[in-house]
């Protein structure tokens, strides 16, 4: 199981944390998005928008990056400071 933090408006849809079952040897971020959409259908819509980025161990990563159990994973909807 991977615990994923949902940031910003994503928490309104899926709660602050989502538990996702992932393959034992990990998966890519793109695959993770697919698993999240399956296991938490409410998150499917924002995830297919192409505007959500994954942050793994405090680094924003591309869809081909790999995640493993134990990684600190967060989903970032579009950001805005100021």
């Amino acid at each position: 199981m991977l615990e994923i933090e949902l940031c910003g408006r994503l928490a309104d849809v899926g709660g602050a944390l989502a538990q996702i079952a992932i393959p034992e040897n990990g998966c890519s971020v793109a695959e993770l998005f697919g698993l999240i959409a399956q296991q938490h259908p409410a998150l499917a819509h924002p995830l297919v928008s192409g505007r959500v980025r994954a942050c793994v161990n405090e680094t924003i990563v591309t869809p081909d990056a790999r995640v493993m159990a134990g990684d600190e994973v967060a989903l970032f909807p579009p950001v805005s400071g100021g």
Binding site: S80, G81, G82
Partner: peptide, 26 residues
């Protein structure tokens, strides 16, 4: 710096009033 903060700084912001909350994106 301001233009970049508005579009790239890692914040999520929402306006809250007694009867609603609204997320603000760039």
């Amino acid at each position: 710096i301001m233009d970049r903060l508005k579009t790239e700084a890692v914040f999520w912001k929402r306006e809250e009033s007694p009867d609603r909350k609204r997320w603000i994106e760039p």
